[in-house]
Design a binder for these strands. Structure first.
Lengths: 333, 333
DNA sequence: CTGAAAGCGCTAACAG
DNA sequence: CTGTTAGCGCTTTCAG
């Protein structure tokens, strides 16, 4: 059986479609008697309101787009997946649905997807922009719907932005290492030039100067954010005679640990290590890994709250919000 | 500026809306001259077709729903996240969008979400049903859109189903342990009574009988799928004097490893272990963990292919497809 | 307290 | 080769 329309219900209940609509949406007073008739008709016909028609009329889809930059790696993906999870949950609580899309860290794909979204689809957009300080989002984001940027700060503020203050966790980590007597602390980072990487490195430097320590630039190693590069850079650092390593990237953290394990470098006795991002799995590495934890789920929640605020008509200037990161101390330092 | 409609374009180009529509959709012949005028008008007005109106008319949203049962655990979630990733990718290749929704392993939430989807929203649904052999999906799935079930088999077949043959990987794992001389092989599983758990346990039994070995029922431990339960059951097994443990659940695998580490039980010398599901992180446990790997990403792809086949009008009886699982041998056995 | 009717933006049958 | 026009199912104004 094909779905019954509102008209069918109206006929069966002997009322107008207007009344049916008002009963459904509780948008004007309807006599109890009439309501009952309408409900009965709805039940009998197994009526399901057509949300597409409703959207067309009300110019509201109740759908929010989410654009994340996943690449082929469990580790880095998990961060965004976790954000997505938080977002979906809060969205549902507020009666919204989530369209998930992946830019694959590819600017072109990202911009294309935004164009698709521009086709009147979504009521709002949350985007973790592709790594790039260059791109101008004003090109495709015309303000038809509110946008919230997460995790990475876009060049031009075209919406609220929610970031994680990963510098704070980094600072705490380095300070702890220094307090434990480490002076030659290696630093491994993914490509610099993107906000998150730069922020963390700055914190590393700051921790040194704040503690009156000289910093050896040779101990700062930058490379691609891969397992293998993590291994290589760790090797370089070990040869430099570091007693501790801070890895500012999750995937590289694994490579670093692997190198130390493979070369029988004892953690933390020979080399202490602090990594980035927290996962259940880190409880079963040996020793359990100390890391800077980013509140991914909370980031998702916050982003939605900002977005809903805009959807409710908030017209204030765009805001920038930072969530704290946290140093989780386990056995590796 | 508010978005231009097709009518605006038609007026500006001095043609009818029908022509504009046909130009856009290439659905009937239009003279080159006319086309050019239309394109020009579109560009000038920055015209974006309204997909909601289009959907209302064509009764097709190009949106596919995905319903997964995430709970608050990195480990188990990652499996479904990875599936979602595969699904999104293939969907995009085919011009579809993905609405992501989480049932939280709660039957009521799941059924509610299906009801939301029934509101004419989606063109198709992929669902990893909540753990339960009881529920009758025919109640809410009326065949208005095709549905594909993944990972878990529902009681009544109301759509194609794509599963992973995790029994095969389990069988291989047990066989390998037996071949290595283990006879007392403990088995840890999450709650029985759901298809995946039952299948794996059956494979365990089969591996024993196929090898002419007696099986000690006391070595089969069932419990909640949590880290802590994994630890507890491992303790019980160690006290039973097992020389190897097979853990048929990802979260419990971590608990098991943790227990062995904490109690200085050497892996694999004192107790060999094989776990479930593969993650990057398992490369840095010590020793690196051997596991049964499930092709989550491929599962996603396969599900979409089935769905699209249905959307293209395939009316054959529902099919059941199984993807192979794979034993990944590292250092823990 | 309720109904009639316009119209959201688009597609497609029908007509030329 | 192109235009006219009737809806898709709903919301909402205006009128009673």
């Amino acid at each position: 059986m094909v779905n019954a329309s509102m008209k069918d219900v109206a006929i069966k209940a002997n009322v107008s479609t207007a009344t049916v609509s008002h009963v459904i949406n509780e948008t004007r007073y309807v006599a109890e008697e009439t309501k009952k008739k309408v409900y009965a008709a709805m039940r009998e016909l197994d009526y399901q309101p057509n949300s597409v028609a409703r959207s067309l009329r009300s110019r509201k889809t109740n759908i929010i787009g989410l654009l994340v930059p996943l690449v082929a790696s469990d580790t880095s993906n998990f961060f965004f997946m976790s954000i997505a999870n938080g977002i979906e949950q809060v969205l549902k609580e507020n009666g919204y649905n989530l369209i998930l899309s992946n830019s694959g860290e590819d600017l072109e794909v990202e911009q294309n997807q935004i164009k698709v979204f521009n086709t009147q689809f979504i009521d709002g957009l949350i985007v973790a922009p592709v790594d790039s300080k260059e791109h101008d989002y004003r090109e495709n984001l015309h303000g038809t719907y509110p946008t919230v940027f997460i995790d990475r700060e876009p060049k031009d503020r075209v919406g609220d932005t929610v970031l994680i203050d990963s510098g704070a966790g980094t600072y705490d980590g380095i300070r702890l290492l220094i307090k434990k007597g480490h002076h030659r602390i290696g630093y491994i980072t993914g490509p610099l030039g993107i906000t998150t990487s730069d922020e963390r490195l700055a914190a590393y430097r700051r921790a040194f100067t704040d503690n009156g320590l000289a910093l050896d630039e040779a101990l700062i190693k930058e490379g691609k954010a891969t397992f293998e590069t993590g291994e290589e850079l760790t090797e370089e650092l070990v040869k430099e005679g570091v007693t501790a390593i801070f890895v500012a990237n999750n995937v590289m953290t694994m490579g670093a640990v692997r190198y130390l394990q493979d070369h029988k470098v004892r953690i933390p006795d020979d080399v202490a290590i602090i990594g980035f991002d927290d996962y259940d799995w880190l409880r079963i590495t040996s020793p359990p890994l100390s890391v800077v934890k980013q509140p991914s789920y909370e980031l998702g929640r916050a982003a939605v709250e900002f977005l809903i605020d805009r959807l409710n008509g908030n017209e204030e200037p765009y805001r920038l919000h930072r969530l704290p990161s946290e140093l989780v101390i386990r056995g590796s330092c």
